[in-house]
Design a protein around this nucleic acid. Structure first.
Lengths: 322, 322
DNA sequence: TTGAAAGCGCTAACAC
DNA sequence: GTGTTAGCGCTTTCAA
């Protein structure tokens, strides 16, 4: 069934039917009603493709997916995608996924398969972001980007890290340090900042000895831990739950009694942690909410609305026993 | 730039240019070459939307996403999606995601946003699968479905479960049992079948006492474990790594020495396990490969090729020490 | 407020 | 082997 069938059946012209569908142009409320009711009755849906051709819009938004083995195990990306998909569907958009690689992104914009893109990953200085900006493809980043003028949606990692750190330093005392992931990931630097804020606020200084960068596999986490422990650190903050789990395992392997007085906390729990250490204090974020918000912002942009340069979502701090 | 510009620039007709693009119809190899080269030179890409309108194809394939909290932490779905996306891109298709819910699926087919769908999840008897079949939307399932005539791609879970079980019974001896997840998940039933195959082959019988269904959270896994242990079981197979991790944690919480002689193995390692218990024997699958294969099969279907009703991928058995 | 008609960029008969 | 032409289903001037 097409717009013509409707027009004929109702004795009006295609144009009028189109006006009823889009809401553009002048049309008598009565005829509009009549047409809409008829469409509904016949369960008619206008063809997206035809609409797209006429309007130069796809009604798709693209979501970028990290492809490295490392990230694909992280629940964040899936949860975020689900949020994006939800927000999109609510506004009659669809989500198409694109792997976060230059050739794929290029194809995406050249083939005009999407009206805008949600980027789920943010490295410090990024070729893909530059490309999108250059080509005028609207996008929003989930996370924090240091590139100028980039619309972003993120959790308030720094404030949350500061808050949890302050709380635990107060409660536990002892010498703290942070075991942190890749320094190139902005979010790790942000957590480090929040952690440091709290340390400084208590009169400590921002000593680099307080942080071990680049922890990732079991080996490097263990090494970092032993170095810090030897230096007198007893309160261990981890930049994420992956590291926290590894530290925790490293401790139980060695026998907890071998390292008395150790405390630990987690500056970001993306879904792993809960499973294994419900007792570790941590910061919870909601990837789905972030995705949803980012998508909403993007679609607002596409509709020509003004959007905030940065939207910050609240984290939840889980003090959890101990 | 459109097909017309090209036609004019080269002094041929639109139709000829179209033939060069699609490869359909008769065209002199020489002109074809000339046109293609020119397009390349000018970095011209035909408009997908216009093609779609003319051919009734979208060149999109849909991938369904589970929406429950439970599944969204499972790396399988993301890895599978990445595989699908890879296979699709290689064939100039795009992937659009749809949450696995009836209203969304209905919208998808009514709006004709995709030519086919890859289903990443398989419950025993499924409303959505029935709907797709009814509406003539081509689809393939990653996993095993008992609905008749459903094209499926899966790992050989049963054979692998049988093989690993046999191997370990041989090596360890002792009374075995399986702690299994939701009985409604087909894949759990399949693993149970494989496990049982091996037990029977050793002269055991297919006693239901050998399996505890419905394990999921820490509590139910712990309960199942204690019941079985009390019944004399010493060799514990888990249907997946989530359960395995919980069992492992339950043991270390209790103090391993409290339950002497316990062995454990994992009939499916989706990405969690490796982190925490590299020493537990397990069955590894490759979700990415499965997604890639499913997508390839689907696109073959769409191109009118004959495809196998079921494709089975090999699992990797990790014997891992102990 | 409505209708007629000209696109949007491409494909696919059908003729030559 | 190539060109002509009529769509694909919708939007959007421009007149009426």
């Amino acid at each position: 069934m097409t717009i013509d069938d409707i027009a004929n059946a109702l004795g009006v012209s295609k144009a009028t039917v189109s006006r009823a569908i889009t809401g553009n142009g002048r049309i008598a409320p009565a005829t509009r009603e009549r047409i809409l009711r008829y469409m509904d009755e016949k369960d008619y849906r206008p063809s997206f493709v035809a609409q797209n051709l006429a309007t130069f819009k796809t009604r798709n938004i693209a979501y970028t997916l990290p492809t490295d083995r490392e990230s694909s195990g992280v629940p964040f990306f899936l949860n975020c995608l689900i949020g994006v998909s939800q927000a999109a569907a609510a506004r009659k958009y669809d989500v198409i996924v694109a792997r976060y690689e230059m050739p794929e992104i290029r194809r995406l914009v050249q083939d005009r398969k999407a009206d805008g893109v949600v980027i789920s990953r943010n490295l410090a200085d990024d070729e893909i972001i530059r490309y999108l900006a250059l080509r005028g493809m609207p996008f929003v980043v989930v996370g924090t980007s240091d590139a100028p003028g980039v619309i972003q949606v993120d959790h308030g990692h720094r404030a949350a890290a500061r808050e949890l750190t302050a709380l635990l330093l107060e409660r536990w005392g002892g010498k703290p340090a942070l075991i942190c992931g890749d320094r190139n990931h902005i979010v790790n630097r942000i957590r480090w900042n929040g952690f440091r804020d709290a340390v400084i606020a208590r009169g400590g200084d921002s000593d680099e000895a307080l942080v071990e960068w680049g922890a990732s596999d079991a080996g490097s986490v263990g090494d970092a831990f032993r170095r810090l422990y030897a230096a007198g650190v007893r309160v261990f903050f981890c930049s994420d739950d992956m590291i926290c789990s590894r530290l925790s395992r490293c401790l139980s392997d060695a026998g907890e009694e071998r390292y008395p007085g150790v405390r630990m906390a987690c500056l970001y729990a993306g879904g792993f942690l809960g499973l294994y250490r419900p007792d570790v204090p941590s910061i919870q974020t909601d990837a789905g909410a972030a995705g949803e918000c980012a998508c909403r912002v993007l679609i607002d942009m596409l509709s020509g609305k003004d959007v905030p340069g940065r939207t910050e979502l609240a984290c939840k701090i889980l003090e959890a026993g101990s």
